[in-house]
Nucleic acid binder design. Sequence first.
DNA 1: CTTTTTAGATGACGATCGTCATCGTATTGC
DNA 2: GCAATACGATGACGATCGTCATCTAAAAAG
Lengths: 202, 202
Amino acid sequence: MRVTKAQAEQNRAHIVATASRLFRERGYDGVGVAELMAAAGFTHGGFYKHFRSKADLMAEASASGLSQTVARTEGLDPAEFVERYVSREHRDGRGDGCTIAALGGDAARQPADIKTEFAAGIENLLTALQSQSDTPGDADQRAARMMVIDMLAHSVGAIMLSRACPDGAPLADEILDVCRKEILASLAQGNSDQPAARSPET
Amino acid sequence: MRVTKAQAEQNRAHIVATASRLFRERGYDGVGVAELMAAAGFTHGGFYKHFRSKADLMAEASASGLSQTVARTEGLDPAEFVERYVSREHRDGRGDGCTIAALGGDAARQPADIKTEFAAGIENLLTALQSQSDTPGDADQRAARMMVIDMLAHSVGAIMLSRACPDGAPLADEILDVCRKEILASLAQGNSDQPAARSPET
DNA sequence: CTTTTTAGATGACGATCGTCATCGTATTGC
DNA sequence: GCAATACGATGACGATCGTCATCTAAAAAG
């Protein structure tokens, strides 16, 4: 039963979106093609009319998820980003959360095309964050990039560490609370123009 | 062909060590029982004489890898730890590196017993790091714990982010270099007794 | 020494995996 | 309106998955 060209394109997008969520929840190896298509409301047959292989979909779903994270970050200053990122809500919502935090560990074991998507996604996220960092100068541009790189790694590490703990474990929440506080503190310190900073102890 | 009781115990330990390495390199789902036993020098048959299931071995291999990381960390002060942890050698040596960085993302999707092993491993690592942090007092004990939690999450995030980039990508090295410098700087700052710290710009 | 036990090898099981062949049907291009 | 096209459904393929049954021979128990 053939469908409209627009409908087919919409179905394809829906498959990618479903895959992006399922992969984040269960990992690339944790969900098969048949189950994935069923979750999107189809049978497994039509899969290869849309994608050349599962690896192809993995790359596309990763790119889609990374773009989503970048889009949601645009307009947020670093402190706002940290407040939302290093939170219990984000930790407990893998499927709807950051693709880097959910699949970064898996991406390291995947072929080059997927890692390339991740590097591009990270770069885009850095740009989005840096653009909301109030730094006009030229040497400040490099300092701002270093700051957002450091902050992103810090935030990603906090989420991954917290997620590796059993549900409800005190350590899981402790990691999140300690890291959020420290990251925000280092942001407040780094915001001043000179390294000799006053830290007004919010 | 039966073997000595001591030999069997040694074989079992060898299987666990092999599994710990292979899981770190390819993930829990990336290596099957048969391939794992072959890598250890056996056939798949004897597996269930040693372990009740693959999930059981996953938990045991995780605990083994985590203990190894803790053992290698004991005696290192936080700065020494960071120098070794946030390095290209560590990033490129998954199979021999930290289990938290290699499997932390996968552990989040595993049953509770594995996550419990990870939480215990993290706690032991925190204790080892905190014991080498020169802080005698009582309030300082809590501050030192917060410091090592933050430092560990920061370091883990740096490695995972760098590993998600393609081999040889400039961004991969940049992340490592920026984060190592920043983590060491925040250690130097946090070492002073009062939050109003002088930062001597090493 | 005899009997019992068990580590490990061999082989097979049902299930699931990614992928492909075939077909029907509804939408395109003419 | 007719012919060509292609989305999606159905079904099956070989391979691999975790697990178990059976067999063996040598170590442990008596």
